[in-house]
Amino acid sequence: MTSLDKPELGTSTVRWRFPAVHPEGYKFAAISAGLTLLLFWLLPDLFGWLGVGVTLWVLAFFRDPVRTTPLRAGAIVAPADGLVTMIATMPPPRELIGEGALSAEPVVRVSIFMSVFDVHINRTPIGGTIARVVYISGKFLNADLDKASEENERQHILVEGRDGLRIGFTQIAGLVARRIVPFVKPGDIVAGGQRIGLIRFGSRVDVYLPAGTSPQVLLGQRTLAGETILAIAGRDERIEGVAQ
C-alpha cells in the first residue's frame, strides 16, 4: 500500500443517518398505530397523542443502527447495548460445557443489562461458526438479578473462531421481555459483530470470557453491541476507572 492509499488522519467521510427499524418491529408498530387511531376516535385527543408516543417508542425500540466492528486479533466485542452491571468469576452454564465446548472451570462473566430504551439487536462477540444454540424456557424475573441467569427464559450460544477460540454467551429475557428471537442456528458462519438475534422489551446478555482473560470494561460502563471491546483473548490485564 502506498502513502496515497492511506486515509489521512482526521479526514471524515462518515455521515449520521437515521437508524433503520428491524422488520420484527413492524407488526408491533402497526398494532400500536391501530390502537392509536382507535383512541383518537373513541377518547379525548390526549389519549390519542399518548398512543402516538407509544408508537414512536416501539419504532425506536426496534431500531437497528449500523455498527463498526474493530478488526483486532483476539478482540471480543460486546454482544449488546447496555450497562455493565456485573463482573464475576463463575463456571459457564452446563449447556455450554463439554467436549468441543467450554471447560467447567470458573471464568470471568460480564453481564450487560439492556433497558427498554437500549437497542435490542444482539451481535456475536467474535467471528466464526455457531457451534451451539440452546433455548431454555423459564421465568421472567428482573434481568438485573443474578439468579435470572439460572431461572429466566434464556438462550445459550457458543461460537468458535477459526483460531479455535470459543466464546459462550447467554441471552436472558427479563421482567418485560417475553420472547428471544434468534437469527442464527448451529453451523452458521458469522462475522465478528454480526447480528445474531434480539430480545423483546428489556433483558440481559452474559458473556463468558476465555480463561486467563480480564475484561477491558468496568462496572457502570455502557457498551455498544459490535463496537465496544469487552476483552482481548489471553490478556490478563486489570483496568481501573472512576465514575464521574
Results as ranks from 00 to 15, higher is better:
Asp81Trp: 07
Leu37Asp: 00
Gly98Thr: 10
Phe28Val: 08
Leu96Pro: 08
Ala104Cys: 01
Val110Ser: 05
Arg63Glu: 09
Trp57Thr: 04
Arg94His: 12
Ala33Asn: 03
Leu141Ile: 03
Pro106Lys: 02
Leu71Glu: 12
Leu56Ser: 09
Asn142Tyr: 02
Ala30Pro: 02
Leu38Tyr: 04
Thr129Asn: 08
Glu99Thr: 13
Leu37Ala: 13
Val110Lys: 05
Ala80Cys: 11
Ala73Cys: 01
Pro93Ser: 10
Arg123Leu: 04
Met86Ile: 12
Pro70Cys: 08
Glu95His: 08
Ala104Tyr: 01
Pro79Gln: 03
Val116Thr: 08
Phe61Tyr: 15
Ile112Pro: 07
Thr55Gln: 04
Ile126Pro: 07
Asp118Val: 00
Ile31Gly: 02
Ile76Tyr: 08
Ile112Met: 06
Asp146Trp: 08
Tyr135Leu: 10
Trp49Gly: 00
Ile97Ala: 06
Gly25Ser: 09
Thr69Ile: 06
Gly127Arg: 05
Ala33His: 04
Ser111Trp: 03
Thr124Phe: 03
Asp45Ser: 15
Gly74Asp: 10
Pro93Arg: 06
Gly25Pro: 07
Pro125Leu: 06
Gly100His: 09
Pro106His: 05
Asp64Val: 00
Ser111Val: 07
Leu83Glu: 14
Leu59Ile: 13
Leu39Gln: 00
Asp118Leu: 02
Gly128Ser: 08
Leu37Ser: 07
Ile130Cys: 10
Ala101Pro: 00
Ile76Arg: 05
Leu38Thr: 08
Gly128Glu: 06
Ile112Gln: 06
Glu99Val: 10
Met86Cys: 07
Trp57Ala: 15
Pro70Gly: 08
Phe40Tyr: 05
Leu83Ile: 11
Asp64Trp: 11
Asp45Tyr: 14
Ala73Phe: 03
Leu71Thr: 10
Ala104Asp: 15
Leu35His: 00
Thr85Tyr: 02
Ile121Phe: 05
Ser32His: 03
Pro125Lys: 05
Val84His: 11
Ile76Asp: 08
Val84Cys: 12
Ser115Val: 03
Val133Met: 11
Arg123Cys: 07
Leu145Tyr: 11
Pro125Glu: 04
Met86Tyr: 13
Pro79Cys: 06
Met114Thr: 09
Ile130Thr: 06
